[in-house]
Design a protein around this nucleic acid. Sequence first.
DNA 1: TCTTAGTCGTGTATATAATACACGATACTT
DNA 2: AAGTATCGTGTATTATATACACGACTAAGA
Lengths: 227, 227
Amino acid sequence: MAYTYEHPHPAVSVDIVVFTIAEGELKVLLIRRDAAPFEGSWALPGGFVEMNESLRRAAWRELREETGLNAAYLEQLQAFGHPDRDPRERVITVAYVALIPYERFDVQAASDARDARLFNLETLPELAFDHPRILRRACQRLKEKLSDPIIALQLVGKSFTLSELQRVHELILGKPLDKRNFRKKILAEGLIEATGDERRSGPHRPARLYTVKDPSDVPYAPVIKRA
Amino acid sequence: MAYTYEHPHPAVSVDIVVFTIAEGELKVLLIRRDAAPFEGSWALPGGFVEMNESLRRAAWRELREETGLNAAYLEQLQAFGHPDRDPRERVITVAYVALIPYERFDVQAASDARDARLFNLETLPELAFDHPRILRRACQRLKEKLSDPIIALQLVGKSFTLSELQRVHELILGKPLDKRNFRKKILAEGLIEATGDERRSGPHRPARLYTVKDPSDVPYAPVIKRA
DNA sequence: TCTTAGTCGTGTATATAATACACGATACTT
DNA sequence: AAGTATCGTGTATTATATACACGACTAAGA
């Protein structure tokens, strides 16, 4: 089937920068391309927008199809449209940032679809297209938005220690934070509370567990309306 | 001439939200549509992206073509792509925000191309497409970015009084600011300096004029590379 | 059972930034 | 000379951000 237009139309795709915290590091999800161009190299998950779906929904669908992941937090980053960013034809892509806590990171489903892997930001492979640029912007945006407390909460599990949460902030900012000041600020926000349980993880005093007070503040389920 | 693709492609357009300060008010530039759909109603200036130009350049070109204006400050807002936002066909639009000081606002050129007018944000006409939504987001973004001092500086002339600059902030924020605190903060930023001249405008003490210290901080000329 | 190692949890003092607030100075008009 | 309208200025208070150290608690091993 062929589609004909009076004027030339670019193709429109979405690409998703998926961040998660694994092995105590901030990681990004990449998939290995199984077709030209850039066959065999790594790329952000993504694909073409279908004609009857919104951009956001396309991002959500592509992420699910390519990796099996269900993104609760999915925010538009920006559109990238340099004329030669794809060697095949003119492709304008709308980039999204997704945040997924590692405990909801179903690697089974991810590896099922394609060769998908989490990469440390310091040891990235060669990336296809202008994906290095998109990824840099995504990291920048993540930093800028960190003042919104729900960002970091999206990257920890349902219950977490304050040290874990602090580590998330430190990884995103790329610098260490003071423990007492961090706790003072986070607790002053009033979004989280101690569960009463503790986590023990070594030859030292156990850490108190915290959780989000009002789950509607930090949705863990995707908020996507049916098309 | 017809263009054929194997898969359906959406059209891609750019729309520009042009802000300026005129008559002591924050205004947005709209043009009257001279063709269907929404013929006769008002809309954001914009048009389709050509195949060999970047999104940013398309925004710059369309603004120039439709209004004769040369945007120095032109920032991508976000992409809007709901499937039914255009009744003709699927059109994904990338919205930009432009800031143009009124002294560079060449109304001659603007009215030349089409019926173009500045509107107060409180007295808007009916807008075409999803332009009300785009405009709301643009206002929101403008507020968020106001902490960057160059935003307000883009909306005053080459030389300006501190009261003028304060008024720009007040219009964007929609609330009055304290004069002394405002001056303290602005001058602490170190971006502007008194020219030595004064502006006299009524039966009262004249105001000192200020100007940007380093013009490269606040470019008044468009920074667009040739394609 | 005692020592050791390692993270957990906590408070105070200081510096910086944001806010609240009032009045004399100056130019023009009448 | 009096009236009026904006211009320009400083201090006190509050809130926020930063700097900084040590006892509490658990597990492991001697």
